[in-house]
């Protein structure tokens, strides 16, 4: 069984985001970039399925800057077998929209014919939460989003999903798209020998133009601003003072 895992290079989780003065977006120049945390969970899940003997090959793919090679190398060091980089931009500030990403992935799926795609549920930059669902729709495949557990049995995946108010379990026929939620697993730390080994694993670079997919953005950015801040209020000295303020000043109780 073959798994395809798309991974995105995004601003590192711990970096404070600053908005560019011209309002076109966040300033990503000379900022630390890492693999999208949800994609890391997706890679980890694929590797665990391989370790269980359920999966024979893991292909990781990234779409974007040439530097996304580093992100793919990380995925290879975690245990993926080979990587594909679709070079779609040389501008770190140009985000490829989920619809375009899904269309590019659709082309690659036609070539690679994976049995399962595990994607992160959302990228922490544009926060759209759409690529996996869009890809499943374009392929006409079933989908199981926001997974917190995956079990592969006889041509289907039994997936526990995080929904509002609890958990839902569904069975989805393979091939299918599953998107990873936060609690699916805890990604491993990559050991140095694996980083060295990953350098020898195959990484294919391809220009997006050759795929014949229109990636012109559908959304035009009008402006980007910092959110309105909240200023600190008052310190209260005791529970009595707090209760008094909530009653008489804020009027909320």
């Amino acid at each position: 069984m073959k798994i395809l895992v798309p991974v995105k290079r995004v601003i590192d989780y711990n970096v404070k985001v600053r908005v560019k003065a011209d309002g076109s977006g966040a300033d990503l120049t000379s900022v630390k970039m890492s693999m999208n945390p949800f994609d890391e969970i997706a890679v980890e899940e694929a590797v665990r399925l391989k370790e269980k003997g359920v999966v024979s090959e893991i292909v990781v793919i990234s779409i974007g800057m040439p530097q996304a090679k580093d992100t793919l190398r990380t995925a290879l060091a975690m245990g993926a077998d080979r990587a594909i980089l679709i070079e779609a931009t040389t501008d770190v500030n140009q985000d490829i929209e989920p619809l375009s990403v899904a269309k590019i992935l659709e082309k690659i799926v036609e070539e690679e014919k994976p049995d399962l795609i595990i994607a992160g549920k959302q990228a922490i930059d544009n926060d759209v939460n759409a690529t996996g669902q869009m890809l499943a729709g374009l392929l006409g495949w079933g989908q199981a989003t926001f997974a917190s557990a995956i079990e592969i049995t006889d041509g289907s995946a039994l997936v526990t999903r995080e929904i509002d108010g609890g958990l839902q379990t569904i069975r989805v026929k393979l091939p299918a798209v599953v998107t990873a939620d936060l609690r699916l697993n805890e990604p491993r730390y990559v050991a140095l020998p694996n980083i060295m080994k990953a350098k020898k694993k195959p990484l294919e670079e391809r220009p997006v133009a050759a795929l014949g997919v229109d990636i012109a953005p559908r959304l035009k950015v009008v402006r980007t601003v910092e959110p309105a801040g909240r200023s600190a209020g008052v310190r209260v000295a005791s529970v009595d003072e707090l209760v008094e303020k909530l009653k008489n000043e804020a009027g909320v109780i």
Binding site: L99, A130, Q133, L135, D164, L219
Partner: peptide, 23 residues
């Protein structure tokens, strides 16, 4: 924007060939 609609709407958007605008 709930887990329910986040599951359905992007699939609808892709099949209409339009971008999803979330949240």
């Amino acid at each position: 924007a709930t887990a329910y609609s986040r599951n359905i709407l992007p699939r609808v958007a892709a099949l209409l060939d339009v971008m999803m605008i979330a949240d």
